[in-house]
Design a protein around this nucleic acid. Sequence first.
DNA 1: ATGGTAGCCTTGCTA
Length: 264
Amino acid sequence: MKIASWNVNSIKVRLPHLLAWLKAAKPDVVCLQETKTVEDNFPFLEIEAAGYTAAVAGQKTYNGVAILSAHPMTVTEKRLPGNKADEQARYVEAEIEGVRVASVYLPNGNPVGTEKFDYKLGWMERLKRHAEGLLKTETPFVLAGDFNVIPSKADVHDPEGWEKDALYDPRTRAKFRALLYLGLTDAFRTLHPQTMAFTYWDYQGGAWQRDLGLRIDHLLLSPQATDRLTACEIDKAPRKLEKPSDHTPVWCELGPEPTGQMSA
DNA sequence: ATGGTAGCCTTGCTA
């Protein structure tokens, strides 16, 4: 089961790139972020024609997440639990072939020292509490998305330059580690312990051409999902196209579900 | 020192 995450920065503008990538990469599941549209304007017809159903949490202008699945899917959440007053569309979750998959768009949090940064840390605490609940079920799950977190200095071209940024703030990184301490696995870093690789390059200043990027899009796997992890890669091809998203997809492969039968 | 890019249904805000 191939599960991907991609911040498309507008589903409307990026639809041609998305459809081409579905055809080329053939993921079973894709988690999208920054779709930037309400559910009524989501391109369900084009997505269905490509062989996928969509679970959508929409919002006008900002945020917006979705899960595209080539297999039957049951939606389990359309908002991150833990604060009913929070209407930002940053979380959608579904059950697909026995795997719980969440599309996560964690708040950016800049500038540090404002209510935006407090919102980010609070959102991460809510995500942690929700993950704790999922862990108790002992079912495989994948939190896939734009976490807006640079986990370590190996995930940024210029650590000193990002010291004051909400994506690299010590409190942000500590909250991210708290997710890992629950028993979640950063799939890319686990399979590529020494590789400096990025999933995001700013539109400005020729960041892509100069490879000045960040690794902020992550696949966090539960123990039962990690048992099945066979591959995890960043696909830089979509970032090379005309009018690209500033993010590129990251994907992982989960092997077959254990049968519980003894081997001979 | 400044502005540099992209998307939204706007003329500023978010990233």
